[in-house]
Every structure is written in structure tokens, then in C-alpha cells.
Design a protein around this nucleic acid. Structure first.
Lengths: 205, 205
DNA sequence: CTCCCGTTGCACACTGGTGTGCAGTCTACT
DNA sequence: AGTAGACTGCACACCAGTGTGCAACGGGAG
């Protein structure tokens, strides 16, 4: 055998299949991002494929959404653990986290809308680990007195990341303005003084 | 004639009709608040009435939502103009605004979810006046240097009131905790220092 | 060349919500 | 007593989306 662990056989076959599968997922993010109520037909058309084919890859609409959510969780978790382990001060870590998670949040902003109504429970369940890591970071900031303690870490982290998603979902999500706005705003609401907040984002524009 | 300007005739008739109409509207807020995708049937049942009757008062689902939105706009505008005219400092005015608008925001939180998808345009149109008044208040605060200027007033006001609605929509919307959280958080993100913010909400708990 | 298999295009049944029509009932006003 | 009108209960047509079945087609793998 000429392979080294991964399946090389059917190379072109399964590769083109995975291509369409990935294309469906990618385009589903765009389409659902514009209209969370878009149907499988809309997604299929946008992916240059027939509705029947989409059902070939994802037996039901829920499967598609679930896969999308799992993707998002994976990406966000990767960034979050890395930032959490960097040993930087909590506020600086937060700035880096937002900067790196911003494109991801923008791409997956649709999950915010999908979070209520029909798929809410499924998405909420998948998002558990992310919530924990987020709360850890905020807790660390509160313990070292760089974040305010007017709210418990669990809630404060939820509100803060809610704001980031809200801005990512709003009109100003394009360009760097959105990222700056989200970073400064979330820092302020975490209790970081304005001067310090602006200094921090100045470092990473 | 025995009336003084308003129609007294058909008193009991139209009154009981308005009662059911108002009851439908009230219960629609509750039902849609729990599930924005609830159908006319669900609303009708919850209102103790038949689906056909709802269509008697509101020819289409859009009419119902529009009426709900108009109600919300009226109530919020009333509070906002009153607070805006009180002549208080902008941050204090903001605190009073949130305190008084909180029950309203909580009741009408469903409009946040309904704002996208199908009715988004209609709702957005109705909300125009509110946005302006809100921006005025924030602008006043920025001009008198009690609010931060890291974002233009139009955007900052949108983000701030978005956060208030987000908290009103979240799990901690019940009790006074939600109101406190929303007030402090929005003050912080408006650039009010933490000590000042806590002092302000201490005045009006 | 032949087979496999992803894809296509069409078919269908099913669900759930919307909006309408109409005859009937009950009740407050005349 | 009679009537207007709000409400009911049932009917219907309509639409949009979901999920499935199946006979082709077409290109890469054996």
C-alpha cells in the first residue's frame, strides 16, 4: 500500500464529493446569514446543485445546521484555548481573542438567529464548551481585578460575547470598524477603563 | 346627546370587542415572546378565542405584528421624550430611561427576534423615530463629555439599546437583576466610569 | 469496456401555516 | 320582539417547505 494512514484510494472520487459537501456548507452560511429562514432549495441553488443532492449529504435540515454549529464550535474553541493558555493579562487576552475570533463570528453570525426557534436546543447544547472557556477567561480577569465584578463571570461573559455577536450581526460588521467597535465596546462593558481600552486596541488595530 | 366628545353609544358592545382585541394583542406578546414562530392558531387558543376571530380583528399576521410594533413605539417614545426633556445630565437621564423602559422592553422583546425575517422591514420602518430620539440622547452625552466618543452617536446608541434588549431577552430578564445588569452594562459601554455608573444606579435601584 | 456511484430531474406524499367563506348561535341594543 | 353584530365552527383552497423514491446520466476507477 502506498498510503500513510489516510485513505488515498478513491482519491478523486471522494475528494470531489467532499468538495461539494464543503461547498454546500460554505454557501449555506452565506445564504442563511442573509435569511435564516431560507430553505434547502435556496441553499442548493446557491451551491450550484440540486436540492436532492443536499439531502444526499445531509439527511435533514437539522443535520446541516448541526454540522455548521460543530464547525463553529471547533474554530472558536481552538482560538479560545490558545488565547487562554497564552498567559497574557485577561484584558489583553480578550483583545486578542476578539481580533482572532472576529472573522469566525462574522461568518457564523447566523447561529445567533438560529439559536431560537426549532434548532435552539441543539445549538445551545453544542455551545456548552465555548461558554465554559469564555467564563473562565472572564473569571480570570475578575480575579486579577482588570474586569469589573458587577456581574458574575458566567453572566458577564454571556453578555459580552452576545454584544460581539450582535455587532458582528449588525450593519457595521464589514471592514475593520466593526472589529474595533466590538472590541472597545466589549472591553468597556467588562469594566476596563476607556483609556486602557483604547490603548489596548491601539496595539492590535 | 349625553356624551362629551367620545362615542358612548354601543358602549358595552364596542367595549367588549375592544376587550377581546386588546386581549389578543396582550397574549400575542406572551406567545410570540416564547416562540416567535408561533402561528395565529396558537395566539388564538391562548387568548381563549377561535382562529377565525383573530382574523376578524387583524386581516393578516402582518397587521397584528404591525399593531404590536406601533404600541411599542408609542410607549417607548413617550418615555424617551419625557426623559429627554427632563434636563438632567445625559448619564442620569439614561439611567432613568432604562429604569422606566425596562418593563416595556421586556414585554416587547419579541420584536427583536421578529426584526429579521419577513417582518424586518416593516418593524424597522416603524422604529425610525425611536432611533432618532435615542441618538439625540447619546449625542447630548457625548457633547457634554459624559459619554465616550469612540463611536458615532448613531451607532453607539444602536449598540447600547441593542444590549438592553439582549439582556431583556436573556434568561436574567426576570427580577430586578436584569434591570441592574442592563443599566450598568449599558452605562459602561457608553463610556461612563465604573464608579460613577454604580453610584448612578445606586440612586435608582 | 464495464461497473460504480455521485449527481440529476422528476415524481410524490406529507405537514403546517395562511387566509377566506358561510351558516349558525348568543347577546346587547332598539 | 326584533335585529345587528361579534363570535363560533366548520369548510375549503392555497402555498411553501420537507423528505423520499426512482429512473436516468456521466465520468472516474477497476
Amino acid at each position: 500500500m502506498c498510503n500513510n494512514g489516510v485513505v488515498p484510494t478513491e482519491s478523486s472520487r471522494v475528494r470531489s464529493m467532499n468538495e461539494t459537501r464543503d461547498r454546500i456548507l460554505d454557501v449555506a452560511l452565506d445564504v442563511l446569514g442573509e435569511n435564516p429562514d431560507a430553505g434547502m432549495g435556496d441553499i442548493a441553488s446557491a451551491a450550484g446543485v440540486v436540492r436532492r443532492t443536499v439531502y444526499g449529504h445531509f439527511p435533514s435540515r437539522l443535520d446541516l445546521v448541526r454540522t455548521l454549529t460543530e464547525r463553529a464550535v471547533t474554530e472558536v474553541t481552538a482560538v479560545l484555548t490558545e488565547v487562554n493558555a497564552s498567559g497574557a493579562e485577561a484584558d489583553a487576552a480578550w483583545v486578542e481573542f476578539i481580533a482572532r475570533v472576529w472573522p469566525v463570528a462574522h461568518r457564523y453570525r447566523v447561529l445567533l438567529a438560529l439559536r431560537r426557534g426549532e434548532y435552539g436546543e441543539a445549538i445551545h447544547g453544542l455551545l456548552g464548551p465555548v461558554d465554559e472557556l469564555l467564563a473562565d477567561l472572564v473569571k480570570r480577569g475578575q480575579d486579577s481585578d482588570v474586569f469589573a465584578q458587577h456581574l458574575p463571570a458566567g453572566i458577564l461573559s454571556q453578555v459580552a460575547y452576545g454584544v460581539v455577536f450582535a455587532i458582528a450581526d449588525s450593519d457595521l460588521s464589514n471592514g475593520t470598524l466593526g472589529a474595533r467597535a466590538a472590541t472597545i465596546t466589549s472591553l468597556l462593558m467588562l469594566g476596563v477603563p476607556e483609556t486602557r481600552a483604547i490603548a489596548l486596541v491601539g496595539d492590535q488595530p
